[in-house]
Design a protein around this nucleic acid. Sequence first.
DNA 1: CTACTCACTTCAAAGTCTGAAGTGCTCTTA
DNA 2: TAAGAGCACTTCAGACTTTGAAGTGAGTAG
Lengths: 106, 106
Amino acid sequence: MPRGLSLVCPCPPAGLVDVVGKKWAVCVVTLLGHHGALRFAPIQRSLPAVSPATLTSTLRSLEREHLVARVRISTDGRATGAYALTERGEALYRSLVPFASWLRAA
Amino acid sequence: MPRGLSLVCPCPPAGLVDVVGKKWAVCVVTLLGHHGALRFAPIQRSLPAVSPATLTSTLRSLEREHLVARVRISTDGRATGAYALTERGEALYRSLVPFASWLRAA
DNA sequence: CTACTCACTTCAAAGTCTGAAGTGCTCTTA
DNA sequence: TAAGAGCACTTCAGACTTTGAAGTGAGTAG
């Protein structure tokens, strides 16, 4: 390779590195992709090593990037809704499926 | 959904969360997958936002998990080698290809 | 010889994550 | 209807990670 030359950066745009770079973001998207809309508590139970503070912050980042949105679950009269993937989030989830299988298999 | 029940955890085993959870690990693996073996400096130039300290720490984690290894480049008599994906690292890279395209397209 | 690149290391400051605790609210069950 | 459980967080201190700038010693090109 010629010296001093820079390669193409394979990194996502600034806004996304900070979301996808979050330790649990990929897990949350995978979880919602598998199970559909979920409330806070079930997400928390499925990711035993995440603290509620971190989970809140992860969910807010994902909302800011329009990857997840809050939805109301019809079978439930609660004030706050559940979290579901948006269209954009679904696309991300589909791209993550092979990665998620590798992780589980590894 | 029944209350109080926990879902399957979609998370990788403990050792891997801490590697893949590193902010730049996925970028480094993608970069090495695209370009083959690379030295420290070109990797650093391709990931402009990473500091050398963080890059060193990321590479060490990836080595510890046997995802990258140091190799000697024949065209170069330097003491330290370049970094290349292992077999395991290649498998990870293949699983990351759709994710990487989504990130670039997003 | 001199200047440059390489592959790091060091340091302080900023940011992120953990783990435990606590808050106010909404259900369910007796 | 009152007690208790679960929900969706928030707060806090301490630990860990990343940044950004600077510096180091060894190798290489002119």
